[in-house]
């Protein structure tokens, strides 16, 4: 008797639950699952965007071509270099800024606002701004280096420096947002922990290592995961600053994908890139999640 009521209740609950989830699922299907399924099917086709009626199935040819595509392989390498360098830089910058602005001081909100401001700006605007800063002839950065007695650098025109320039600019633009999240995390750490430690004679470094960092652990995991995912999507900065150059040193997967699909009208080949890219990111994120959640359970 009791059991049956419970069962009925369960049913009702799952129906309501489904009703609540339905709109989200619908959107997920329309904007994600279906397009991805289409992408997947196009990746096995020869498909010129101007000739949608002449799609032909060509099996794995697009994927085989990918592994012989020097520019694509270069773009994979560049994307990884970007992710590996921007994630630690951006996390550290965000944490550092959060520590700086986490204090009671007159006008501290002005600083918080200033550090947060770049994230509100469009990446296009930020990129144009930094194009002027990086200009090797009369840019701000070279002028500043000149004052320090360092000779002018080529920056965006150098195959060695262009990617680093993009990394620094991206971290600068993005870290304000994560700073805010870190700040919220810092303010969540109970003050009595610090007080107790101080009574026990702990120094500042000890407080940071053993109270602040552990207290920010979950937030750090969230932040690094979200930065990794957005870093993989790098396209606007190279598009605006270097157009993928010099000598393909800043070409990225998504940029290459966009060019192939839209500019060169080769939707089939572009879709193959999208599929490989998505799987790659999925695997990396899963590994990252596995590693971090294991640490979390203890």
């Amino acid at each position: 008797m009791n059991n049956q009521v419970a069962k009925k209740k369960m049913n009702m609950e799952s129906v309501t639950g489904l009703a609540f989830v339905a709109p989200a699922l619908f959107l997920l299907f329309v904007f994600l699952i279906i397009p991805f399924a289409l992408s997947l099917s196009y990746s096995f086709m020869e498909y010129n965007i101007l000739k949608p009626d002449e799609k032909t199935f060509i099996g794995l040819k697009n994927f085989i071509k990918l592994f012989h595509d020097k520019v694509f392989l270069k773009s994979v390498l560049n994307t990884f270099v970007f992710v590996v360098s921007v994630v630690p830089l951006q996390v550290c910058a965000a944490l550092g800024l959060a520590l700086l602005v986490n204090r009671k001081m007159k006008g501290i909100s002005v600083f918080r606002l200033a550090f947060f401001a770049p994230t509100v700006l469009s990446l296009v605007v930020v990129s144009i701004l930094w194009y002027y800063i990086y200009n090797p002839n009369n840019g701000l950065l070279n002028a500043m280096l000149g004052m320090l007695g360092i000779s002018a650098q080529p920056f965006l025109t150098s195959t060695k420096q262009a990617m680093a320039c993009i990394v620094i600019m991206s971290a600068w633009q993005g870290c304000g947002f994560q700073m805010m999240i870190f700040l919220a995390g810092l303010q969540d750490i109970p003050n009595h922990l610090y007080e107790a430690a101080r009574v026990d004679g702990a120094n500042k470094f000890y407080l940071f290592r053993n109270i602040t960092l552990p207290g920010l652990k979950n937030i750090s995991i969230f932040i690094s995961l979200s930065i990794v995912i957005s870093a993989f999507q790098l396209i606007i900065q190279p598009m605006m600053l270097t157009q993928g150059g010099p000598q393909n040193s800043t070409i990225t997967i998504v940029y290459q994908l966009y060019q192939t699909g839209y500019k060169f009208r080769n939707v089939g080949y572009g879709s193959a890139m999208a599929v490989v890219f998505t799987l790659m990111v999925l695997i990396i994120v899963l590994i990252q999640k596995k590693l971090t959640s294991k640490n979390n359970e203890d």
Partner: peptide
């Protein structure tokens, strides 16, 4: 969903 949106809505 999070990752997939990379490929679709870039």
């Amino acid at each position: 969903a999070m990752v997939g949106s990379l490929a679709v809505g870039c």
